[in-house]
Design a protein around this nucleic acid. Sequence first.
DNA 1: CATGGGATTGACT
DNA 2: GTCAATCCCATGC
Length: 215
Amino acid sequence: MSRADPAPPRAVEPAPAAAPLPAAFYDRPVLEVAPALVGCVVRHGDTAGVIVETEAYHHSEPACHAYVGLTARTRPLFGPAGVAYVYRSYGIHALLNAVCEPEGVGAAVLIRALAPLDGLEVMRARRRVARDAELCSGPGKLTQALGVGLEHNATSLVDGPVRIEPRPPAWAAPALLTGPRVGITKAADLPWRFCAAGSRHVSRPWPPGLRDAAA
DNA sequence: CATGGGATTGACT
DNA sequence: GTCAATCCCATGC
C-alpha cells in the first residue's frame, strides 16, 4: 500500500497489557495479598477487569479447601505462589483463586468480582445479561465473562494464559471495606473479605453501617 | 463403591 | 423471599 493510504482500520486496539505482578507479590501472608489485589487487573485474552472484591483463605481455618490437607484437589493450594487455583463450585461454576504464601502453605485469594475493563463485547456475548454491572459481579460470573475454566487450574498467573497486572493509575489507592466472607458456614466470623468502597460491581451489597466509607 | 456437601447463580413466588 | 441445577472429590462403609 502507498503512503497516502489511510491506516487500515483495526478491528480491536491491542490490549495495553502491563507487565504482570511477579510471583513475589503473592509469596507473603494471604491477608496482605487479598486487600493488595483490589484494584489490580485480571486479564485473559481480549478480556480484562479490575478486581473490586476478594476473599482470603488459609489452611488453618475450615472454610479453606486446604484445611483437609494435601490431596490431589488441593495440591495447587500448597504449591508455589503466583499460580491459579480454579475449582468447580456447586457442580456448575468455576471459581478463580490466586495461590499465595510459600510452598507448603495452603492459602489463596478468591477473586469475587471485577469492574469490566476490556473486551466488553466478548463478555456480553458470553454472559447475556441485561446490564454491564452484572457481567462480573460474582465469582462464577467473572470466570464466565473472561472465559476462565477448570483447564486453567494450576497455570501460572505470571506467565500463563490468565494474568494479573498491577493497579492502573486510576486505582492506585482504592478505599477498602472489610467484612465477613460470603457463602460459607465454617469460620464465617473471620472478616477476610475485601471490597473496593462504593463499587457498583461487587457481588453482594454491604450491610447497613458499612456504606458510609463509600468513595 | 455410595454418599453428601459445597467459596453460586438464575429463575421463580 | 425460596429452590433446583449439576459435578468434583473427601469421606466412610
